[in-house]
């Protein structure tokens, strides 16, 4: 009796089904889509008739990268995966394309793992019909850009969870760079000769206010960039915890790069109490580090 029960349980446990793995180990992920093992297969099934790539560059850790296009009317799904990954995703096709008779629309948004190294990125796609037959494979040749922008002086603040942290840098002239003032360049005073049209580019520029809506969109990093000839002197770096977006704690890291040389770095953890007294409440940013540029 016992052996019979164990045999029945073992048999039932072996039931096959769609893979429940969300595919978090893959470097290219389509959130919410079904994962299948192995690479995207090619065959003589329905083709992808159009692949639309809006921008050829993607950054490590970037989310919501859009791929879209059309497929033959017999296609039921599009398989997509990164060349080299041991898995791919199944995305059902959409409605008939109103502009091209006999073809269906498809679209997907993928996330790229932060660990992907800069360089070429091949995304392989194939349409699949209702019988599971794959069509010819199509490859989107993309480029993975550097994780951070480049410049003469780059201060990078990154953190490890969805949260709203803000980078502040005070330059040697005392100008404070932050989300409320994203450029240290100052216009000439009244009566002075006008500045060249692109003079604003000479200041330190904050590239984004990451995590501002707590919606998890984009990379959790901000950069202060002096594209060329950063002013000599002492800089002060600070951060403000605007919101932890419900997180219990968030780890952060600050790195300062002069060209290819890392001048300094600092790391720490932001706690909920850090968000209670912040810049919005009139307090100064949390002092992180200082460094000199010669």
């Amino acid at each position: 009796m016992r052996r019979l029960c164990l045999a029945v349980v073992a048999t039932l446990c072996a039931c096959e089904g769609a893979d429940p793995d969300p595919g978090l180990h893959l470097s290219l992920r389509v959130p919410g889509a079904q994962v299948r093992g192995g690479p995207v297969r090619a065959g003589d099934g329905p083709p992808i008739t159009q692949l639309e790539v809006r921008t050829p560059t993607v950054r490590p850790g970037q989310g919501d990268y859009l791929l879209a296009g059309r497929v033959a009317a017999t296609a039921a799904a599009v398989h997509v995966g990164r060349v080299g990954d041991d898995g791919h995703f199944v995305v059902p096709t959409g409605v008939p394309d109103p502009a091209v008779e006999g073809e269906l629309q498809w679209s997907l948004r993928f996330d790229l793992a932060p660990t992907v190294a800069p360089g070429p990125l091949q995304v392989r796609l194939a349409a699949v019909d209702a019988a599971g037959r794959s069509g010819p494979a199509m490859t989107a040749d993309l480029t993975v850009g550097p994780a951070a922008p480049t410049g003469d002086l780059v201060v990078r603040l990154s953190w490890d969870a969805v949260a709203d942290l803000d980078l502040y840098v005070v330059d040697p002239a005392g100008n404070r760079l932050g989300p409320d003032d994203p450029n240290t360049w100052r216009a000439p005073p009244p009566g002075a000769p006008p500045a060249p049209p692109d003079a604003w580019r000479t200041g330190g520029i904050l590239d984004r206010d990451a995590g501002a809506d707590c919606d998890g969109a984009g990379v959790m990093a901000e950069h202060a960039v002096w594209a060329a000839d950063a002013p000599a002197g002492t800089y002060a770096v600070g951060l403000d915890v605007a919101s932890l977006c419900g997180q219990a704690a968030v780890g952060w890291r600050v790195e300062v790069w002069r060209g290819d040389t890392r001048l300094t770095e600092a790391a720490g953890v932001a706690w909920p109490e850090d968000a209670r007294v912040g810049v919005a409440a009139g307090a100064p940013p949390l002092a992180v580090t200082t460094f000199d540029v010669r």
């Binding site: 769609a18 799904a77 209702a130």
Partner: peptide
């Protein structure tokens, strides 16, 4: 207790709803 749940929460190769592997002991 052993439970086998037959559902349509997964997708097969053609993108059609398919049973997700979610049996439990």
């Amino acid at each position: 207790e052993y439970t086998h749940l037959a559902d349509a929460l997964g997708r097969d190769a053609a993108g059609a709803p398919a049973d997700l592997a979610n049996d439990r002991v």
